[in-house]
Design a protein around this nucleic acid. Sequence first.
DNA 1: ACTTGGCACTTAGGTGTGTTGAGTGCTAAT
DNA 2: ATTAGCACTCAACACACCTAAGTGCCAAGT
Lengths: 338, 338
Amino acid sequence: MSEPRRLEVLRAIVEDYVHSREPVGSKALVERHQLGVSSATIRNDMAVLEEEGLIAAPHTSSGRIPTDKGYRLFVDRIAEVKPLSGPEKRAIQALLESAEDLDDVMDRTVRLLSQLTNQVAVVQYPHLGKDAVRHIEFVLLAPVRILVVLITTSGAVQQRVVPMPEAVQESELSDLRQRLLSSVAGVRLGSLPQELAAFVSALPARSRAVGKTLAHSLEQLAGINREDRMVMAGTANLARSTVDFPLSIGPVLEALEEQVVMLRLLSEMKQDVLGVSVRIGRENPYGGLAEASVIATGYGPDSLAKVGILGPTRMDYPTTMAAVRAVARYLSRILDDS
Amino acid sequence: MSEPRRLEVLRAIVEDYVHSREPVGSKALVERHQLGVSSATIRNDMAVLEEEGLIAAPHTSSGRIPTDKGYRLFVDRIAEVKPLSGPEKRAIQALLESAEDLDDVMDRTVRLLSQLTNQVAVVQYPHLGKDAVRHIEFVLLAPVRILVVLITTSGAVQQRVVPMPEAVQESELSDLRQRLLSSVAGVRLGSLPQELAAFVSALPARSRAVGKTLAHSLEQLAGINREDRMVMAGTANLARSTVDFPLSIGPVLEALEEQVVMLRLLSEMKQDVLGVSVRIGRENPYGGLAEASVIATGYGPDSLAKVGILGPTRMDYPTTMAAVRAVARYLSRILDDS
DNA sequence: ACTTGGCACTTAGGTGTGTTGAGTGCTAAT
DNA sequence: ATTAGCACTCAACACACCTAAGTGCCAAGT
C-alpha cells in the first residue's frame, strides 16, 4: 500500500470527478487509468484516503468525491500547471494591448479571464499607494461651486465638485492653486494630510475659509482608494456550472454583489502555490462561498492588486490556475508600458 | 357573461398567481375573492379568457396561469399603481441626498431599486448630449505624453493620456490650451468636431502636429457617450425568484452581462402606461429574456436616460411599477439640484 | 340569456413495491 | 501487499395505484 500510489489515486479521482461530475468508483478508475493494480487494491487505498478525510462517499456504497481537503492536497502537491496554448497567449496579448485606457484594460481583462476559465472573473483596480501629487486643478463652475481635480504621478485622475463657503474669484482661485501645488507637488498621497494641514495653518486669514475647504476636498480625493473598486464578469457561467444545485447560486451571487466582501477576500489571499493563491470551499471566510473556490494572484509592481476567478469547488484547478497566472502577467506588463 | 367580470377574473388570476406561484383554479378563485358567482360561472369565464389567449393551462386539467398577453392587458387596463409608503419615500430621499458624486448617486440608486423591488435593477448614466465645453486642461506627464482633460457644463470630466508625435514644451502647451479653449469654450459637444477642424486648419505649421493630436483626442473625449454606461445590482434576486426553473437564469444573466443588449433594450422603451414602460416576456426583442419582463422609465431633464428593473414575467407589476416611477422621480430631482 | 349544481373525466404528484447496477467492505487465498 | 470472490447496500428507475384539484359539459333553474 504505497503512499505514492495513493496520491496517484487521489489525483485520478479528482480529475475524473471534475470532468464527469459524478462520484467515481474503484472499477471505473482502473479502467480509465493505467494504475497497474486491481480494483480491490484501489478500494483499499480509497478506504485509507477516506480515513484521512481526503475523499468522501455521498452515501454508503457509491463512488467517492474529493473533499475540500482532498482538493487542497491535489492543488498543493499534485497538480502541474498546464501552460496555455500559443494561440491563446497571442489572443490575450492582442486583446489587452489594444485597450484605450485603464477602465478599458480592466474591462477587457475581466471578460477575457471569464471566457478563458468559464468562471466568474474578478479584477481589483490597481493601488495608488505609492503615487504622489502631480497636478492640481480648480475649475470655477459657479461662484460657490468648484470642480477640484487631483492628478497623480501614475496618471490617475480623481475629481469632485465641491461647494464653497463663500464666493470665490477666478484670480484668488488660481493664486491658491499655485501656492497649494508648489507646497504639495511630489508629495505622496499618504503624507498629503500633514502637508495640507501645514499649508492651511500658514494661510492668511483672508483666504482661510476657502483654502481650508479646498485642502479638505483634496485630502478626500487622495483618500479615495482606487483599490476599493473592482470589476466582474461571467456571472452567467455560474448558472451553467451549477445546473445541478441551483440552491447554492443565490449566496454566491450575493457575495459577488457585496463588493466589500469580495475585496476583503481578495486582499486576504496570500501567494501560495506557484505564485497563485487558492481558497477551496470552506476555507473561504465567507459562508456563502462554502461550495465555491477562489483562485487569485497579485499583479502590478507590488502584486498588491488582485485578479482572480470564482467557481464551484469542482473545477479544473490546473488549467484555471494557469489562466489566472497568465492573465496577471500580461496585465502587469500592459500596465507597466502605459 | 359580462365583460367587466371577465376582466375582474383575469385580475384575480394574475394577483393570485403572482403571489402563490401556482396555477389558479376556479374554486380557489371564488373562495379568495368576492366575485358573487359560483365556480362554474368562473369556469365559463375562464374558458373565454383562454380562447382570447389571455390565460393558459399548463396541462389539461390544472388551474390557469396568465400568458404574456394576459399580463399585458392586466398592466394596460386593470392595474392601479400602488403608491409607496411614507417611510419608504423618506428612506429613498435620505439615501439619495447623502450621495457624494454622480457615481455614488448611480450606485445608491441601483441598489435601492433592487432592494425595493426584489429584482435586478439597472440604471443608465445620464446623457451628455446638450453639454458644452466648459474647460480644457493639458497636463505634461512626460515630454511626449500628455493628459488631456475635458470638462463639460454639467461638470462631467473625461480624461485620457495621449502620446504626442514630438516633444512638447510646457509653454507651447499652455499657449495651445489658451487658444483651443477660447475657440471651443461653450461649444456643444455635438458640434465640437467642426470647430476643432477649423481650429486645426488655422494653426501655424510649427504647432500643427501637436495641435492636431490634441484636437483629435478632445474629439474622442467628447465622443465618449456617458449614456453607454450603466450600473446593475440585485442579480442575486434572480436566483431567488427563479428557484423553480433555474434553466432560464443562464440566458438572463448573459443578457445582463451584455451591456450593449441591455442599453439597446432600455433605449427602445417608449413611455407607455402611467409614465412607465413595460416589456413583458416575448415582447422583449432579445430571446434570452423570453421569460422576463422589463419595467423602465426615463429620468432627468428629457427623460432620455433610463432606470428600470428586470424580473420574471410573474412579478407584482403594480408595486414594481410604482417603485420604478418613484425612484426615477427622486433621481431626477437629485440630479437637478446638484 | 345567464347562472349553477352535478358529474364524468383528466392528470400531476405522492406512495408503495420490485428490480437493477454500481459500488463497497471483508475474507481467504496468493 | 495484492487480489478474487462474495455478500451486502443503496440510489435510481419503473410500475402500479391512489388522491386531490381541476376541467368541460349538460341539464335544470332563474
